[in-house]
């Protein structure tokens, strides 16, 4: 599903040039659950942003389902993103002014899905995430675990092929964290590809494969058995 070759990303300021990704190559097959680990500043998040088409690489190739997407313009990227990719963030990133239902509904609005279909799909996913009873609450009224479940619901409501999760349990206690990891595992078992950046060895164990990064390069791959 994902094939990147010699990917480069360099951040420049007036005085300093920081190499975030240094000719990095890797592949993720459809249906895989991959964890990316490494110390702070090793380039994990940069990699995730490029995979999520939120950032451009400075060099190298990025094939998504066999199509070169590294030179896509903003509009094409937005289109590809909203149809194929779901995001889960460490800090949930729910919109405070929208209710649970409305937050989850948002990706479907941008996809142009009809009102009635939106309603049934959002209800189905909220049901699945067991937060249907909170549908009319605002994010501030929920616990961290509940908020992350809403975020996961929002990430999967448009049935993406790929979910990118950036330290999804970073802001949660262990029991809530486990719950979220279980949700991701279930999704993966139903066929969704998952790439997750994490600091937590415990979380990484839910994945099929761990990619370890250092200084913008992959240094080790562990296959989980």
């Amino acid at each position: 599903m994902i094939k990147i070759t010699n990917l480069e990303k360099i951040y420049r300021t007036e005085e300093v040039e920081t190499v975030a990704l240094n000719k990095l190559s890797m592949q993720v097959a459809e249906g895989e659950f991959v964890a990316v680990m490494g110390p702070s500043g090793c380039g994990k998040s940069t990699l995730l942003n490029i995979l999520g088409l939120l950032d451009d690489p400075d060099g190298g190739s990025f094939l998504f389902n066999g199509i070169e997407v590294s030179r896509f313009n903003e509009r094409k990227r937005a289109d590809l993103r909203k149809r194929n990719i779901g995001f889960v963030f460490q800090s949930f990133n729910l919109i405070d002014e929208l209710t649970v239902f409305e937050n989850v509904e948002l990706p479907l609005i941008y996809l142009g899905v009809s009102t009635s279909e939106r309603k049934s799909r959002v209800e189905a996913v909220l049901d699945k995430m067991q937060i249907m009873h909170r549908r009319n609450h605002y994010p501030q009224q929920l616990s961290g675990g509940q908020q992350q479940r809403v975020a996961v619901a929002r990430a999967v409501v448009n049935k993406p092929k790929l979910i990118l999760a950036d330290e999804p349990t970073g802001n949660l206690d262990s029991s809530n964290g486990n719950e979220v990891m279980q949700l991701l595992t279930d999704l993966n078992e139903q066929g969704t590809t998952i790439v997750m950046v994490t600091h937590s060895e415990h979380d990484a164990r839910y994945s099929h494969r761990i990619i370890r990064m250092l200084d913008g390069q992959t240094v080790l791959e562990n296959l989980m058995v």
């Binding site: 937005a78 289109d79 993103r81 149809r83 995001f87 990133n93 990706p107 941008y110």
Partner: peptide, 10 residues
Amino acid sequence: GVRKVLGAEK
């Protein structure tokens, strides 16, 4: 940011 991530165009 969230809206853009979810596919909102400019």
